[in-house]
Simulated scan of single mutants.
Amino acid sequence: MNRIMIVDDAAFMRTMLKDSITKAGYEVVGEGKDGEEAVKLYKQLRPDLVTMDITMPGMDGIAAVKEIRAFDPKAKVIMCSAMGQQAMVVEALKAGAKDFLVKPFIYDRVKDSIEKVLGL
């Protein structure tokens, strides 16, 4: 079973994403609330995929992706952003993210993105 880590500063967003991920048949192995926690948890848990919010206090999602990809160049990250953050999404993709999801999350889009990034 593929192991997924969720990173978002909003607990309710993590819960919504976790519901979609588990419904799609994946295991959520960890949850982080900011970029620093994301990097630390990634190194401990080695998940198959990370969903990463862009805008978080402290280290943002783009900086966290860069650190995670420096640690593990094969890391698979899907960025999550609110509407109207297209410039940040482009920056995230340049930083090494494989795809992006727009909030609010739509189950089919979450499932499709995970399958695409994992190559299923």
Score class of each variant (00 low, 15 high):
residue 45 L to K: 12
residue 57 P to F: 08
residue 108 D to G: 05
residue 33 K to M: 03
residue 7 V to T: 13
residue 82 A to K: 06
residue 100 F to N: 10
residue 44 Q to E: 14
residue 90 V to C: 10
residue 78 I to M: 03
residue 99 D to L: 08
residue 54 I to W: 04
residue 24 A to Y: 07
residue 19 D to V: 14
residue 25 G to V: 07
residue 66 K to T: 01
residue 69 R to K: 15
residue 4 I to K: 00
residue 18 K to C: 08
residue 44 Q to Y: 10
residue 110 V to E: 00
residue 35 G to I: 00
residue 67 E to G: 10
residue 24 A to F: 14
residue 4 I to H: 00
residue 41 L to G: 13
residue 39 V to P: 07
residue 104 P to S: 05
residue 98 K to L: 08
residue 59 M to Y: 12
residue 38 A to K: 03
residue 22 T to C: 13
residue 113 S to V: 00
residue 96 G to I: 01
residue 67 E to N: 11
residue 69 R to G: 06
residue 58 G to V: 01
residue 26 Y to M: 06
residue 118 L to I: 04
residue 43 K to Q: 15
residue 4 I to R: 00
residue 61 G to W: 02
residue 28 V to T: 11
residue 105 F to K: 11
residue 47 P to E: 13
residue 36 E to P: 06
residue 15 T to R: 13
residue 43 K to D: 06
residue 89 V to Q: 06
residue 53 D to I: 00
residue 102 V to I: 15
residue 30 G to A: 10
residue 48 D to G: 03
residue 90 V to A: 09
residue 99 D to P: 07
residue 110 V to N: 01
residue 28 V to I: 08
residue 92 A to N: 02
residue 99 D to M: 06
residue 26 Y to T: 03
residue 85 Q to E: 11
residue 102 V to F: 03
residue 117 V to W: 02
residue 81 S to K: 02
residue 63 A to P: 08
residue 18 K to A: 15
residue 38 A to T: 09
residue 107 Y to K: 14
residue 76 K to N: 08
residue 32 G to L: 05
residue 113 S to N: 02
residue 109 R to Y: 07
residue 51 T to H: 00
residue 62 I to W: 03
residue 15 T to M: 15
residue 51 T to L: 01
residue 20 S to G: 15
residue 106 I to P: 02
residue 86 Q to F: 10
residue 58 G to F: 00
residue 12 F to R: 03
residue 113 S to C: 06
residue 73 P to T: 06
residue 84 G to F: 02
residue 70 A to P: 01
residue 12 F to G: 03
residue 77 V to G: 01
residue 38 A to Y: 02
residue 99 D to Y: 09
residue 57 P to I: 12
residue 43 K to A: 14
residue 110 V to D: 00
residue 75 A to L: 01
residue 49 L to E: 07
residue 68 I to E: 02
residue 65 V to M: 09
residue 4 I to M: 02
residue 1 M to F: 13
residue 32 G to K: 01
residue 31 E to D: 07
residue 17 L to P: 03
residue 62 I to S: 02
residue 109 R to V: 14
residue 61 G to C: 04
residue 8 D to C: 00
residue 91 E to S: 14
residue 17 L to S: 08
residue 48 D to Y: 13
residue 98 K to S: 15
residue 100 F to G: 07
residue 49 L to W: 13
residue 57 P to N: 12
residue 27 E to N: 14
residue 10 A to L: 14
residue 112 D to Y: 06
residue 44 Q to W: 05
residue 88 M to H: 14
residue 12 F to T: 13
residue 111 K to F: 08
residue 107 Y to P: 09
residue 71 F to M: 04
residue 37 E to I: 05
residue 48 D to S: 13
residue 89 V to W: 11
residue 94 K to V: 02
residue 7 V to C: 08
residue 108 D to A: 15
residue 69 R to I: 10
residue 79 M to Q: 07
residue 65 V to P: 03
residue 96 G to P: 10
residue 57 P to M: 05
residue 69 R to Q: 09
residue 69 R to N: 14
residue 32 G to T: 11
residue 101 L to D: 04
residue 78 I to F: 05
residue 4 I to S: 00
